[in-house]
Design a protein around this nucleic acid. Structure first.
Lengths: 127, 127
DNA sequence: TCTATACTTGCATTATGACGCAAACGAACA
DNA sequence: TGTTCGTTTGCGTCATAATGCAAGTATAGA
C-alpha cells in the first residue's frame, strides 16, 4: 500500500527488512485520532467510565458543543479506537481496548525489533 | 498538571482512580508528533537505518525541503521521540527507542488497567 | 401523526500546521 | 578573515482541522 501525503506525490517504500514491521503498525490515522486534546479527554472519560457511554454523557467532559463531540467520537471510531452501538435513540460508545492495546504493543515490539535496542527476551524494566 | 486546550479553558481532572494512569501517559504532544506522514517516514528511515543520521541523509526519504525536514525532526525531538547530537557542522539524530517503547507499553498497561478488558494474566487472543 | 429527544450533518469561520524560499547561524577550513 | 557547508529560523502562503450554529434524521412515546 502506497502512502500519499497531502501534496500528492510521495511513494515511499521503506529502506529494508526490519523496519517494514514498524511501517505497517505506524498508521498516521491512529495517531491523528489521538492528537487532539478534546479527543484525549473523551477517550479518558470513556476509558475511566468502565462502561458504554452516550454522546450526551461524554459531552460533559469537554467544554465544546455536542455536535463537535459527536464528530470527535466519529474520528476515534474511524480510527478503530472506539466503537459505537445504537440502542433506541441513543448511541453508546466503548473503547476498543483490546485492539488499541494490541496496536500499541505491536508498535513497541516492531520498534524493538528494528532498532538496535535490547532484544525482547532480556528487556529490562528500565524506568 | 492541568491540561489546557487551545481555547483557553479546560481543567479536566479525570473521573477517578485507574484512569489517572492513562491520563499521565496519553500526552497529545506524543501523538501529535506522530500524526504527520512525513514525520513517520523520517522516523521509519531513522529506525531502519540502525545508526545516527544527519538531517541531509534523512532528507532523502521525503520529497520536501531540507528546512522542513529540520523542523519535523525538531517536533519529534521535542516530543522525546528522537534525540540529536551536534558533531562539527552536522547534527546526528537517533531514535529514543527505549523511551518510546516504554511509553507505548505504559499506555497499553494503563489502558488495560482502567478498562474492563481482560486482565493481563488471562487476556485472550480475542477476534 | 405530532412532538420530544438524541444524535448527525452542512456550512461558514477561525485556528493550527505544513510548506518553500531566503536569510541567518555556526563550525570547519583555506 | 573570508568562504563553504550543514542546519535552523523568519516569514508569507496554502491546506487541513476544530468549532458553533442551525438544520436534518431517526427513534420513542403521547
Amino acid at each position: 500500500m502506497t502512502q500519499t501525503n497531502k501534496y500528492g506525490r510521495r511513494g515511499r517504500q521503506l529502506r529494508s527488512g526490519s523496519s517494514g514491521a514498524v511501517a505497517k503498525t505506524l498508521d498516521p490515522k491512529f495517531f491523528k485520532a489521538l492528537c487532539d486534546p478534546n479527543r484525549i479527554s473523551l477517550l479518558l472519560r470513556l476509558a475511566g467510565c468502565g462502561r458504554a457511554c452516550t454522546v450526551s454523557e461524554l459531552n460533559s467532559c469537554c467544554p465544546i458543543d455536542l455536535s463537535v463531540v459527536s464528530r470527535h467520537l466519529g474520528v476515534l471510531r474511524d480510527a478503530g479506537i472506539i466503537e459505537s452501538e445504537k440502542r433506541g435513540k441513543q448511541v453508546y460508545y466503548t473503547v476498543c481496548a483490546v485492539e488499541v492495546i494490541a496496536t500499541l504493543r505491536s508498535i513497541a515490539n516492531a520498534l524493538e525489533g528494528c532498532c538496535c535496542c535490547e532484544p525482547k527476551s532480556r528487556q529490562e524494566k528500565k524506568k
